[in-house]
Structures are given as C-alpha cells and as structure tokens.
Write a protein that binds this DNA or RNA. Structure first.
Length: 429
RNA sequence: GGAGGGAUGGCCGAGCGGUUUAAGGCGGCAGUCUUGAAAACUGCUGGGGUCUAACGGCCCCCGUAGGUUCGAAUCCUACUCCCUCCGCCA
C-alpha cells in the first residue's frame, strides 16, 4: 500500500506505476474521494468539538445544581448535535471502505533502475553461473527419471488428491527432506537467519497484509467453514509475524528463514507446464524474509540474492539471475531478481527463486514500524521488507535429477546432500 | 464441544457514567552531581488523523464491532483472543 499523502503529491508517478504493472485503478477518482473525505472529517471534528464543550458545560451546570431549565435546553441542543455527528459519521463510514479498497489495489512503484518492459521478454539477464553440461546421450526429463527410479509417483498422487499433487517415495522422499534441511542449515548457520516454523493456515488479515488479497484470491485455497487460507508461500506467515508492532532500531535487521509446504491453485495457468512437477498445487519451499532499515534495503536485497544463489552453487546447478522488468514484476515489489535453474531434460530455465524488495509497501499494510535512535529524534518509521525463495524445491529437484543423470538412468546426489541422505551417493533402480 | 475468569500505554497496574487532560510504578531518554560510572535528584517519555509555511491547535484510539447517553475505559449486545477446569482427541 502506498502512502495516501504520497499519492496526493505525486499522482503522475502513481498513474505511471499502475500502467507499467498492467493494473487498473482510477487514481483521479481516488483523489476526489479523498478530498471529499477530508472535508467531511473536518466538519465532524468541528461539530465534535462543540459537543465536547457542551457536555462539559452540562457537567458544570449539574454540579452547581442551578438553572434546571438552562440545563434541559442545553441537553436538548446537544442531543440534536449528537445526531448530526452520527449522521455525518455514517457518510464517512460509507466512503472509507471504497478508498481503502482502491488503496489496496494500487501497485508498488518500480525502483528507478528497474528496466521498462511489457512482459518477461523485457527482463535482463544480470549474470549466469555454472557450466552447461555436455551430454553424450539425450538427457531425459525428470518425470521419466522419477518414474523409472521409483521416487516420484504422479499417478498415485493424483489418485489421492488430484493432478498437481506429487507423491515422493523412498529415496525421493528422503531427497526432498534432505534438500530443505540442507537449505535451512545453510541459511541459519552461515547466513545468519533465524529459523521459524510457522502455521500453514493463515487468516484473512495476514493474506491481505502481504498483498495476496484481494488481488490473487482465485489462486489460493480457502478453508471451508473458517476464514482461513492455505499458505501459498512462507512469506505470508513470516512477514506477518511482526504485524502491528513497533520494533526497536537495535533489533534491525531481522532475518528469518522458514520451511513450509506451499499451496497454489494455479488458476489461469491450466495447460502450462503440465508435465512432471514444474508447476504443482503443493510444493516445498525454504523462504528468506528480512525486516530492515529503509536506507539499507537495496544492499540487503543484493545480499539476499547471494544467499539464495549459494544454495544453487553448492548443489552445482547451472543458473542465471534475471532483473525483472516493470511489466513482469509482482504487484507489491519495488525491485525483483529471479533465479532460474537450467533443466536439460525439460530443456528450459525454471524459476526457483524470486527475491524482492518491497520497500515500505508491505510494512504499511501490515503496520510494521521501528523507532529510531533518540539521537535521530526517536521517530517512528516504517521498516522495509524483503523476501526471496531460498529456494523452491520441486524445480530444484528437477534440476538435480536432470543435470545429474547418467546414461543408465541413475542420478548422482550432490555431495552437500549426502550427509542428509545417510551417505547415499547415487540413486539407481 | 461445555463451564468459569480475563483483555487498559514498551511492561506491570489503578480506574467501574462527568477535575481521566488515563493515577502510580518499572523500563527508556536527557540533564544535575561525579575524574568516569553507579546511586540520588529533576525533567521528558504511545499511536493515528486533520488544519497550519511554521509555532501550535483540534479530533480519535483503553481487545474488535455495534448500541444506550448531552457525555462511555466505565453500562448493554455480539465477536475475537488469552487463562483455568471438564469432555473428546494426535
């Protein structure tokens, strides 16, 4: 959510951001509603002041126990005034939700160095890492490898739940577990993140706070009978951890990492990436979340990306880093880097991480602030929030299977995972 | 699921229709004293909105939302969350 005061002063910049991110919000209409609202507030406050003064006089008159008639007249006057205020307040209550709703639909403004672009084709490759493996045979896609190795059973997953709910078995299940344990250990032990294990169901306020609602409501699983949603990413519970708090400057920066399963309906993505586990309704992910001082957030974004990259480097997966253009970045983001791993079987780059600086956009929604040092005036300011996958599992698993496959169909386990696998070096039939 | 108890500022805690402009304490910050620190003393110390060039003024916030009243932290209703006990249960 943007600062309404900022919108008043910079309507053109806001309109540009709305256009660039392909949103539709009538900013002029918002400003009109806002002006009306402020006029109404002014009226109410004037009336309320009169009411407060009148009530005080009633109190004094009653105490002096004189002028019964005067008191009765005044009380009657105040009753009329009170009704008038209630009437005005009703009008205010009608306009406020519309303003709030419009505010929630305005996207964040892209940072100055974000490339302009309409869609994914406008994204810039910032760097690549790793050497493309030369295969002496035609690399097979992960769904074939997974099935023949008996570690991935999509048919039975579909039987239990439906298409897009993968079932990992045996050494495959262990590999999945090894991956997120490895990632959590790396981030907690080497990168200084605190591990949290949050709820997988969250309430509406949390979903709205991080920006999934109202825009993405069709992409989420909603619990029937309760106002709860399955988390589409750990970003939601972890970022909401400090909702409505004022942090001490000494606490910043705060780094959290969390494993959760993630649930996404992927409405509107039907027919895309239907083979294998490239796009599924349930997947595992290790998330990185930061709360930082505003001055440091872009520096913190670069560090966050490096932390995610290290996961891929240690796993020996070829990847590239993209800086997303205005048209392809998410609603709430100021600047986003995507990490894409190379999958030689599926023959495409797969997004395994998306790292964003939201500046104060989320902080404003979830009301997370911090108090400055008293030497800086002790002012209360919004923190900046960041997050990124560190990293998403199914596609990382795909990259491992497809990159590390051998001609006989077996797959070599990356060395860093072997301690988590009971020393298993190769998955074979 | 059933029965009770509770929710007040960063924390503890008073208040139970009108000097509440939310007592008091703790914590925090600044100052005095001191070579420095501690102690003691003094002062300051929540958030939001709105008007103003600014100084500052005014309005709102005592879990949330309604209601009663000239006036609500205080009375009424509903809801949420926490605690205790019972039942059920991994």
């Amino acid at each position: 959510m943007l600062d309404l005061n900022f919108i008043r002063k910079n309507p053109e910049a806001v309109k540009r951001a709305v256009r660039e991110k392909h949103e539709r919000v009538d900013i002029d209409h918002l400003l009109k509603l806002d002006a009306d609202r402020r006029e109404l507030i002014h009226q109410i406050e004037t009336l309320r002041k009169q009411l407060n003064e009148g009530s005080k006089r009633v109190s004094q008159l009653k105490k002096s126990a004189s002028g019964g008639q005067e008191t009765a007249t005044l009380v009657e006057e105040m009753r009329v005034l009170s009704d008038k205020i209630k009437d005005h307040e009703k009008r205010l209550d009608q306009s406020t939700p519309e303003i709030d709703d419009l505010l929630l639909r305005i996207p964040n403004i892209p940072a100055a160095d974000v490339p302009k672009g309409e869609d994914a084709s406008g994204n810039q490759v910032v760097r690549t890492w790793g050497k493309r493996r030369e295969f002496s045979f035609k690399p097979r896609p992960h769904w074939e490898l997974g099935a023949s190795l008996g570690i991935l059973d999509l048919e039975r997953g579909a039987k239990i739940s439906g298409s897009g709910f993968p079932l990992y078995k045996g050494i495959g299940a262990r590999l999945e577990r090894a991956l997120f344990n490895f990632m959590l250990d790396l981030h907690t032990q080497k990168h200084g993140y605190q591990e949290v294990f949050p709820p997988f169901l969250v309430n509406r306020a949390s979903m709205t706070g991080t920006g999934q609602l109202p825009k993405m409501k069709d992409d989420m699983y909603k619990i029937d009978g309760d106002d709860l949603f399955l988390v589409p990413t750990a970003e939601v519970p972890v970022t909401n951890l400090h909702r409505d708090e004022i942090l001490n400057y000494k606490e910043l920066p705060i780094y959290y990492t969390a494993y959760t399963a993630c649930f996404r309906r992927e409405a509107g993505a039907y027919g895309k990436d239907t083979r294998g586990i490239i796009r599924v309704h349930q997947f595992d992910k290790v998330e990185l979340v930061k709360f930082v001082r505003p001055e440091t957030s872009y520096e913190e974004l670069e560090k966050l990306v490096k932390d995610a990259e290290e996961v891929l480097q240690l796993l020996g997966i070829e990847y590239r880093v993209l800086k997303l253009c205005t048209g392809d970045m998410s609603f709430a983001s100021s600047k986003t880097y995507d990490l894409e791993a190379w999958a030689p079987g599926a023959e495409k780059w797969l997004e395994v991480s998306s790292c964003s600086n939201f500046e104060d956009f989320q902080a404003r929604r979830i009301n997370v602030r911090f108090r400055e040092e008293s030497t800086s005036g002790g002012k209360v300011r919004y923190v900046h929030t960041l997050n990124g996958s560190g990293v998403a599992l199914p596609r990382t698993l795909i990259a491992i299977l497809e990159n590390n496959q051998q001609e006989n169909g077996s797959v070599v386990i990356p060395e860093v995972l072997r301690p988590y696998m009971g020393g298993v070096e190769v998955i074979s039939q």
